[in-house]
């Protein structure tokens, strides 16, 4: 694997929680994700998948080890820089679809794009509509974010993760709330952005069928990567 092609590099990451007692949640986790690679993470509930994903997304900085995103070490980066990296290079879909209830569906998708400021408002809006259309919820665009179903929210969150065309999309069970038909739609979209747009995906899932169809499965158990 060409070094420069690595979007994500994790080197011996350890994570502890100290409250109520010290527990060692991630143990010497090392992994790499190449450009255009579609990777899934599986493992038992409570084995540390979400915890790992928060570290990889640069939101959690309280860990030991080394994390590089697009070749850039994040250990010493300022918070503002990390925010910029999240905005520009990482798309994140939470385990529980998090939307801003004060904003419309469309606006939720647009916000990270407006923040990045690379495109005009019209372009961002156009792109957001395209994504919503791909995910089959274009008709919900003008609704308030709390007026749609759980599955629809999850798809809005996926559209939002994709708005800035990030290098890598991380998802914490992004299809957990979807029926198999919509789950397939999401899988196909992920497949497409990996193959055609050369974007990487790192998706935590409990769905074995979903995992089986990805390029690579990282299996975790009790805070360790086993494959």
């Amino acid at each position: 694997m060409n070094k420069s092609e690595l979007v994500l590099e994790v080197e011996k990451v350890n994570k502890y929680f100290h409250d109520p007692m010290t527990i060692h949640v991630l143990k010497d986790v090392s992994m790499q994700v190449a450009r255009g690679e579609f990777v899934s993470i599986t493992g038992k509930s409570g084995c540390g998948k979400s915890t790992l994903l928060y570290i990889l997304s640069t939101m959690d900085t309280d860990y030991e080890g080394e994390l590089k995103i697009d070749g850039e070490p994040t250990r010493m980066a300022s918070r503002t820089r990390l925010a910029r990296i999240r905005n520009e290079k990482i798309g994140f879909v939470f385990q529980f679809h998090y939307l801003l209830t004060e904003f419309s569906v469309l606006h939720n998708v647009m916000l990270p794009g407006l923040k990045l400021g690379m495109k005009s408002r019209e372009e961002v809006e156009h792109r957001a509509m395209e994504l919503l259309d791909d995910l089959g919820i274009a008709d919900q665009a003008r609704k308030a974010a709390n007026q749609i179903s759980g599955g629809q929210k999850q798809r809005v969150a996926i559209a939002r993760a994709m708005i800035n065309d990030p290098l890598i999309i991380m998802g914490d069970e992004p299809t957990g709330n979807l029926d198999s038909r919509n789950s397939d739609i999401v899988f196909d979209i992920f497949r497409k952005i990996a193959d055609e747009h050369k974007r990487s995906l790192l998706i935590v899932t409990h769905d074995q069928d979903f995992a089986a169809r990805t390029d690579r499965i990282i299996d975790m158990d009790d805070g360790r990567v086993i494959t």
Binding site: A83, R84, R86, F94, Y98, L100, L111, K115
Partner: peptide, 16 residues
């Protein structure tokens, strides 16, 4: 708090 967390997760900095 939720809104703040989402804004930060999607790339708004603390100073934003």
């Amino acid at each position: 708090l939720d809104a703040i967390a989402i804004l930060k997760a999607t790339g708004f900095s603390g100073s934003d």
